[in-house]
Design a protein around this nucleic acid. Structure first.
Lengths: 301, 301
DNA sequence: ACCGAACCGAAAATATCTTTCACGTGTGAC
DNA sequence: GTCACACGTGAAAGATATTTTCGGTTCGGT
């Protein structure tokens, strides 16, 4: 296995590289080889026929077509067209700027630059990959919910709390649960007209799946925010919101970018709901702002 | 036979439209029809097969191929690829600038785009405004700390927890405090060699200033992460890390961008510390990863 | 009106893409 | 350890798209 990340990544690769990364885990080895080739050199691959690409990657035509399908195209022909478009785009667009991972001996200034760049990349990927139809449906459900429960553990737990704080601010009833037992206990109370949201990057965190399953079976509208649209949790989700999976390195664990991605999704949900319920949301926001104002005063009591 | 090409588009056909115009006189009538169609709607034609384009222009496949040849491509396939590239290019070239705030009646897709854009902006601003000297000093203090306390309330409390989680993962001793009383109680225990970090956007949240003051007076190294470098809290901070203050709107409260900004700073701190303590940090990260692995059921590949 | 050259499209030939199917491999159950 | 099963995989058949061929048609010139 070629462990070294050569990744001559001249490109941010647009949303395709992101898609490849997101879907890579659910790919077989051969398909990963194809996907990698495509992500690394869109222009080169666009010039190849199915057979050519199959030979280049040491696989078969069938595998190439399968990969194209997985990436969301009806067949190889369409993938190839998209590739040509991408190539042209990155030809005209300049400045890839940052190519390397964060290294142990990077000066602190570089760390700042690289981190900022990577998080920006994550945001762009997330925005590009977000299904607005699903998002809209989720917003509708939230806006009309009697109550909303949000499940998340670890880093995702913080995102869950963030969402909860925001929803509370616009007058909705929301709770975040990090304790798996309490989460399930509460999920049992949910019924039609309620909403349950699970946040998990891997999509296979049992402690988060369980409450969502319970909520689902009790008739609540369920939403999953996950980086793995094919993971177990999605079977209990009415709406799936995909977060992006960027490549991680030792010094930049996956948790970091998944958090950024999740927060963007959560912000979108919040703003969407605030729009829909503007009549009540606006005064509620103003009121909570007002209530906190006196706490911001120098010195103490 | 002056069948003028109409060019309903303002411009962007690029070199292709020009080529069509140049070559038009030497074309036969049927070929001109094909060339015109291609020049007027590259994107649309890219979606068509030879047969499709032949029907659209009321000609035959052979003519389409002949036209492609005349335009300098080996065959229709390659013309089509070039067309796709062109379409993508002119797609990306148009209006990337986002000028307006998020409005109440923005469609959900716009909300996503605008939010992502604004958060990217926030990240760029933060990275640009961050004082690397202060950051370096803060990292040094953290890397050598006996223990670290982090204070934050409300949305900043989540950031405090995020930092704490990360530091714990690389084997440091860290605690987050959202309860002002407990925070002060713990701050009293700090002394030289310890680190206290306060996170507050306004810099004048009494409940966060207080514990930092106590820590400061007990000889701990104190760090303030705030959007207001001139605010009261900085008088008790050995190192001040500035977060960016971007304009807010009714639907996008300040809390949103300050959170993004704070998280970037916190990530920088984390990575910086991880670099400095790489010998112990790397195995600790690996260990925590390992410990969580079994919680993720074998979901997918 | 006749001839010749260029134009054009129908259909055959070829290349390319897609689907099917059977084989090998690894994995989990017993 | 062995068996059964499911899954990944590529070879080859099948379908589609592209290219070429070739003969009919038109049009200008004689």
């Amino acid at each position: 296995m070629t462990q070294d990340v050569k990744e001559s990544f001249g490109s941010p690769g647009g949303s395709l590289a992101a898609k490849v990364r997101t879907l890579a885990p659910s790919m077989t080895r051969s398909m990963q080889r194809v996907a990698e080739a495509v992500a690394n050199d869109p222009a080169g691959c666009a010039a190849l026929t199915v057979t050519g690409l199959a030979e280049l990657t040491g696989t078969s035509e069938a595998t190439v077509v399968r990969t194209a399908r997985l990436l969301g195209y009806p067949g190889y022909r369409d993938l190839r067209l998209a590739l040509a478009g991408l190539a042209a785009q990155q030809q005209s667009g300049r400045a890839p700027a940052i190519t390397t991972d964060i290294a142990v001996d990077d000066p602190i200034a570089d760390v700042v630059t690289k981190l900022a760049y990577e998080e920006q990349q994550t945001l762009a990927d997330t925005a590009a990959g977000l299904d607005t139809a699903q998002l809209g449906a989720a917003v509708t459900a939230l806006a009309g919910a009697r109550r909303t429960d949000v499940y998340g553990i670890g880093a995702s737990g913080l995102v869950a709390q963030d969402l909860t704080q925001k929803l509370l601010r616009i007058g909705l009833i929301a709770h975040a649960h990090s304790d798996p037992h309490l989460a399930v206990t509460n999920a049992v109370q949910l019924r039609s007209g309620d909403v349950a949201i699970a946040i998990t990057h891997s999509g296979s965190t049992g402690d988060v799946i369980e409450p969502l399953r319970v909520a689902f079976e009790h008739g609540a509208t369920t939403i999953a925010i996950t980086g793995r649209p094919d993971s177990p949790i999605t079977q209990y989700a009415d709406h799936v919101l995909a977060t992006s999976t960027s490549r991680e390195s030792e010094l930049r664990p996956a948790a970091m970018s998944s958090r950024t991605s999740q927060l963007l999704v959560v912000d979108c949900l919040f703003v969407g709901v605030a729009q829909r319920t503007y009549e009540t949301a606006a005064p509620a926001l103003a009121a909570s702002y007002e209530a906190l104002a006196h706490r911001h005063r120098s010195g103490s009591r």
